[in-house]
């Protein structure tokens, strides 16, 4: 989603872009990557538009600024909304993808989208929570023609990133407000709070929506550590994917910590679930067939 309706006449002049994210920390709702781009020559004007780190602005001010930048013919924008189901699924896959990798893919996707639209990007400013140097090298390898500036707190340093943070934050807030539940359980409500784990409204929403078998509605990011305390006494679910963690000390440690709370699963001996198949004909072994004499 973005301002791709028509290519602006300044597309072929050198352009600058800012990229920022909203909703990385929250335990529920989508994570949004947003970008804002404009001609390099417009940067001075941009710095007079009162864009600031979206977190320091009130919601009404953010909405107002978003509307004004949408109406600005010298500004383009785009967003990538990453569904909480996708976040959970990727982070809980057999081959787990961490949040940094998901973030990098999303940011690079935005750069590619805008390049493909025909804009001549020469400089891109990116906010990061991870190591800026490694990230800059990764971005430069993928897009050698672009000069990347990667910085922590870039949203408060560069107006073009502040603008991107407004795009991202407003989109995230709207996506959460307009979230349509996939689930049809009774007594669900929309008092999510901010989604941040410390928010009392978010805490009580989680408490109200936990389910002993299903966990939570799919709005929740199941891969967040925040979820575990809600599952003390919940039904234990074991996954084959968690077994592979034995190879990876670090992950294994984390997993077993989670499993103590009876939520994410635990390392277990395969005998728990199926017999070893010893002495069985190969035909049956490979088809996981077993003769039962009593059940």
């Amino acid at each position: 989603m973005g301002s791709e309706c028509e290519i602006r006449e300044w597309a072929s002049t050198p352009c600058v872009m800012g990229i920022d994210e909203a909703g990385r920390g929250p335990v529920l709702g989508p994570m949004v990557y947003g970008c804002l781009y404009c001609p390099v020559s417009y940067m001075k004007t941009l710095s007079t538009l009162e864009f600031a780190d979206s977190k320091t602005l009130k919601e009404e001010k953010r909405e107002e600024l978003f509307e004004s930048l949408k109406g600005d013919e010298k500004i383009g924008w785009a967003v990538d909304v990453i569904d909480p189901r996708e976040l959970s699924a990727k982070m809980l896959r057999k081959n787990k993808i961490n949040l940094n990798e998901i973030s990098h893919q999303s940011a690079m996707g935005l750069v590619k989208t805008v390049l493909d639209l025909g804009y001549l990007l020469t400089e891109v400013y990116v906010d990061t929570v991870g190591d800026p140097d490694k990230y800059r090298i990764k971005l430069t390898e993928r897009f050698p023609s672009i000069k990347f500036v990667v910085a922590k707190k870039a949203d408060s340093l560069y107006p073009v990133v502040s603008g991107a943070s407004i795009v991202a934050k407003v989109t995230r807030d709207r996506a959460l407000q307009n979230w349509e539940f996939d689930e049809t359980a009774e007594n669900m409500h929309r008092n999510f709070g901010s989604g941040y784990p410390g928010d009392p409204n978010t805490k009580s929403w989680l408490e109200d929506h936990k389910h002993s078998v299903f966990g939570f509605p799919s709005l929740v990011r199941f891969s967040w550590g925040t979820c575990e305390p809600y599952f003390k006494g919940g039904v234990q679910v074991l996954w084959e994917a968690d077994e592979a963690d034995d190879d990876d000390r670090k992950t294994a440690k984390r997993q077993s910590k989670l499993s103590n709370l009876g939520f994410t699963g635990m390392k277990r001996k395969s005998e728990d679930i199926e017999s070893s198949g010893k002495g069985r004909c190969k035909f049956f072994q490979s088809r996981k067939l077993e003769q039962l004499s009593h059940f």
Binding site: E183, E186, H211, P217, V235, L238
Partner: peptide, 18 residues
């Protein structure tokens, strides 16, 4: 399902599993 759910009993499957 490709998992072992350590529970046996009724559950609102159609409300959550879509």
């Amino acid at each position: 399902l490709p998992s072992c759910i350590k529970y046996s009993g009724p559950s609102p499957v159609s409300h959550y599993f879509r």
